[in-house]
Design a binder for these strands. Structure first.
Length: 562
RNA sequence: GCGCCCGUAGCUCAGUGGAUAGAGCGGAUGGCUUCGGACCAUCAGGUCGCGGGUUCGAAUCCUGCCGGGCGCGCCA
């Protein structure tokens, strides 16, 4: 079901019309053809005296039109005012001009009321928007190799990737969640060898894996696997490694499941290679003249696209590099018809971004179709001391431990509220202590409180009004809450564009605060006045819906009591 | 050395061209015989790392420093 259009989109459209009308009427000169198209920016002013929405269009047009911004703003205002008097249901009202050339606008109460009704009608779809250009998007994230449980380091990618997917879906895109892992390399053998040694009571090799999970695996090796592994003709480390890595992979999948993260596609390196995608991609590059042989290795001419050196695709010993496999995977993904590929990688991989996008360009898919989100690393500290996190050392905090300690909701909020580019010092003791004062509970509390009001109203025989039309305009407190509710679609658009969710958590907090203030100032349940109660119940129910949908967007539960 | 990311309130972080730089936590003070006090209200707290520049307007863009992280392989 389609959602409700954002007030900003409606406003932008009204401004577009007003601008065109002002040019038709001769109030404004036409934009000179040589000047670049001017996008209409509509923002929420920080100061409420500046209206609900504001545009700097007149300031932007001042230079190309060679007119004072205040004059342009006045012309736009007059055109808006004229069109508002002609049509009913206009989104905006009361346009005013402010120095140095802003045009400040208010949302028309009738529009606010109609939008609240619309939100109630679409229910869980409120907050979803239609993309201007819907795309099929592949988001590959986590993609940790199955050599050990997820720790908080690579778990950050799970949070960021999942949030991105949810936001893109809400913004009208078709998203495929993909997990890619290496099921062939030396790491599988290393894991198997580590397990084998532990089982035999021998020391683990220097480059092997340690930690409790290795001991657990050693204990759990099935007899038939073990028998095959110790037979003379078998590659024991490999046999055990294949079994162990699948077991670890399944564990990762269920850890992610506990977090609420599910993948549509699990893809392996051997699958990509076996199906011939790598050969085909190299052939495609060869046809374009983008690869060459040198010193018995095969090179991609990455410098032709601005890289500082060419990159090896196939080593002189015949083995593919990681990059070579990436190229094949690019080919395979695009063959499935995606418009855009997004990779969520650790920031330490930033050096490999350019070559990947260069390869996409060389293959004819366009570099802009490939985006990489670099997620900053998480530094783990305990009592101020950094903990080195590596599966090889065996010392790390797992995702499961994190979820057991602070819960999925608090953990999700923690990562959603921070830019993925900012480094984090994660102190699990501090996180535990702070989990009780995590703002997520503040937001959930508002939701539970409204749910309680609605239950109580039902017991009192009161029910929400079918429509709030004509009933909010004369109450500034109610109108203020309604306007806050209606911001949700904009936040979804912004989050999808920016690939960030901090705005969404900030909005959720703000909406909860606005509701609490409404609750303080307006009695919702009043058996003596069922008419007013009905309107207020409809409004707080819309607030509950907005809170629930916002939390759902973040993958966080919305409890009816707590 | 070169490249990328970061530096904002006591702490953790938002804000990437707009009007008086915000939130949460922590601190101070006050508020329930009425719909959930996991709440509300008020206050204190800032050379936006530093210096130049662009702009009507800079935390935001450019540039030079300072400080921190990461990367620079026929590794993954």
């Amino acid at each position: 079901m389609p959602g409700v259009e954002s007030a900003r989109t409606a406003t932008r459209r009204a401004l577009e019309r007003a601008w065109a009308q002002a040019v038709d009427d001769g109030r404004l000169p036409a934009l000179p053809p040589e000047s670049a198209a001017t996008a209409i920016e509509v923002v929420r002013p920080a100061n409420p005296d500046h209206g609900d929405l504001s545009t700097n269009l007149a300031l932007k047009l001042a230079r190309p039109l060679r007119r004072p911004p205040l004059e342009i703003a006045a012309a736009l205002r007059d055109s808006l005012a004229a069109s508002m008097s002609e049509e009913t249901g206009s989104a905006i009202a009361d346009p005013t001009v402010a120095a140095p050339g802003f045009l400040n606008l208010r949302l028309a109460p009738g529009y606010v009321e109609a939008s609240i009704d619309a939100a109630t009608q679409v229910g869980s779809s409120f907050g979803r928007v239609e993309a201007q250009r819907p795309q099929r998007i592949n988001v590959e994230f986590v993609s940790a190799n199955p050599t050990g449980p997820l720790h908080i380091g690579n778990a950050r990618g799970a949070f960021v990737g999942d949030l991105l997917c949810r936001v893109l879906e809400a913004a009208g895109h078709d998203v495929t969640r993909e997990y890619y892992f290496n099921d062939a390399g030396t790491q599988v053998r290393n894991l198997g060898e580590s397990v084998r040694r532990v089982r035999l009571g021998e020391p683990v090799p220097e480059d092997g894996y340690r930690g409790e999970y290795v001991s657990d695996l050693a204990r759990e090796v099935p007899e038939e696997i073990w028998a095959r592994a110790v037979s003379d003709e078998a590659d024991g480390a490999w046999v055990i490694g294949v079994w162990a890595s699948e077991r670890v992979r399944a564990g990762i999948e269920s850890s992610l499941g506990r977090l609420g993260v599910r993948f549509d596609v699990w893809r392996t390196e051997t699958g990509i290679e076996r199906e011939g995608w790598i050969d085909r991609s190299i052939e495609r590059l060869r046809e374009g003249g983008h690869v060459y042989e040198s010193e018995r290795a095969l090179w991609f001419r990455s410098t032709a696209f601005g890289d500082d050196k060419d990159r090896v695709v196939r080593r002189s010993n015949g083995e593919l590099t990681y990059f070579g496999k990436d190229i094949g995977y690019l080919e395979e993904k695009f063959s499935r018809g995606f418009d855009r590929l997004i990779y969520v990688w650790g920031a330490d991989h930033h050096g490999t971004v350019a070559r990947l996008r260069n390869a996409a360009e060389a293959m004819g898919y366009g570099r802009d179709a490939v985006e990489v989100l670099l997620v900053a690393w998480v530094r783990f500290v305990r009592d101020g001391q950094e903990i080195s996190m590596s599966k090889r050392s065996g010392e790390f905090i797992t995702l499961d431990e994190l979820l057991a300690e602070i819960g999925a909701d608090a953990a999700r909020w923690y990562f959603a509220a921070r830019a993925h580019t900012s480094g984090i010092d994660f102190d699990i003791e501090l996180a535990k202590r702070q989990s009780n004062e995590n703002p997520v509970y503040y937001v959930q509390y508002a939701h539970a409180r409204i749910s309680s009001i609605l239950r109580k109203a039902q017991e009192a025989g009161l029910s929400p009004a079918d429509s709030v039309a004509g009933r909010l305009a004369d109450d500034p407190v109610a109108l203020g809450l309604a306007k806050e509710i209606l911001r949700l679609p904009e936040l979804v658009e912004d989050a999808a564009t920016a690939h960030e969710t901090q705005g969404v958590t900030a909005y959720a907090t703000q909406l909860a605060t606005t509701f609490h203030a409404f609750y303080r100032d307006r009695r919702v349940i009043d058996p003596a006045d069922p008419g007013t109660s009905g309107v207020r119940l409809a409004l707080v129910d819309a607030a509950r819906l907005a809170l629930a949908n916002t939390l759902a967007l973040l993958g966080i539960s919305a409890p009816e009591s707590m």
